[in-house]
């Protein structure tokens, strides 16, 4: 072993002795080198993932792998799809739409990819955290191919990703964004960031609020193995930014809409409407109290997974 190490060290030393042009020239002092071409993060090139062959491959993945897996681990109940018909009166039934959902888990994206109805599903891109999914080229390629992911900054919409998203919406692509900017750390939601609202205002397209319930139980942040559990996907009434709304107020309205959907998923539509109008929808982000008490409080509003084990012996 030592012998091998010695040989490697010797080879290195030999290479180090080589000079330009056999080696790259060092940057002279006082000269500012050009920035390196990045191919990861927001610079990750995803055009290819929207080419016809890639879309076919994605379709096969979504229908052939994700859907069966989702039906086993998430058994989703999808509600409120009929509300999407109301897009007819806003924007036309096949125009691009931004879907804005709360985010608990890695299961959320495949769940949405399998539950967003046609005609949006086949032209859907997913805003994915540039610093997470697109950190490496391999990881980014997988995300772009499997989910149709495009890189988006978590905290604010940068110029680059905004242009990309705007162009795609202009081309008729719909966009799925998780405005919380990341998965929930403790089961409670996080405040909505302005990205989805900003894009909706900039492109003048409707936003469909979506609430995902129960995915946190399947694969909470920090967990490695999924635990099958029932989920509910609730689509809300499409929202258009008002004349005098900015991305902050519109984002707040979006958050309220998702909160009302969350309320609807855990109580019923009527109570949710009553509370929404009264401004008393339960907060997505949870009470501002200590960590354990937050988890404790979560138990009240999170429906327990129904047991589907048999209670009698198999005969």
């Amino acid at each position: 072993m030592n012998h091998v190490r010695l040989q490697v060290a010797k080879a290195r030393a030999r290479v180090a002795r080589l000079g330009f042009p056999l080696r790259a020239a060092p940057v002279p002092n006082g000269v500012e080198p050009p920035p390196p071409m990045r191919h990861t993060g927001t610079d990750f090139e995803t055009d290819w993932a929207r080419s016809q062959p890639a879309r076919v491959a994605r379709l096969a993945l979504v229908e052939g792998v994700m859907r069966p897996v989702m039906s086993v681990v998430a058994s989703p109940a999808v509600k409120g799809l009929d509300r999407l018909d109301r897009l007819d009166g806003l924007d036309g039934l096949d125009g691009p739409v931004i879907f804005a959902a709360n985010h608990h888990s890695h299961v959320d994206t495949p769940l949405m990819l399998t539950t967003v109805p046609e005609p949006w599903r086949h032209r859907l891109v997913v805003g994915a955290a540039a610093d997470y999914f697109f950190r490496t080229r391999i990881g980014g390629s997988i995300a772009a191919l499997a989910m149709g992911a495009i890189p988006i900054e978590r905290t604010k919409v940068g110029r680059q990703s905004a242009t990309l998203a705007t162009d795609l919406i202009g081309d008729g692509w719909s966009l799925l964004i998780f405005p919380e900017g990341g998965r929930s750390p403790d089961g409670w939601g996080q405040p909505f960031r302005g990205g989805a609202a900003y894009l909706a205002i900039r492109c003048d397209v409707p936003v469909v609020p979506v609430h995902l319930q129960g995915t946190g139980r399947i694969l909470r942040k920090g967990k490695k193995l999924p635990q099958p559990s029932r989920t509910t996907v609730t689509f809300g009434d499409p929202l258009l930014p008002g004349e005098d709304e900015n991305s902050r107020t519109f984002a707040a309205r979006l958050e309220a809409a998702v909160a009302a959907l969350a309320d609807e998923a855990t109580s019923d539509w009527w109570q949710a409407r009553v509370r929404a109008h009264a401004g008393t929808s339960p907060d997505l982000t949870g009470p501002d109290i200590g960590a354990w008490r937050r988890v404790w409080a979560l138990g009240d509003r999170d429906r327990r997974a129904r047991r589907n084990k048999r209670h009698w012996p198999e005969l």
């Binding site: 409120g80 609807e264 539509w269 109570q271």
Partner: peptide, 11 residues
């Protein structure tokens, strides 16, 4: 009446 209304009022 739709599922939302039904689930909210029928039970």
């Amino acid at each position: 009446v739709g599922d939302r209304v039904y689930d909210a009022f029928a039970p």
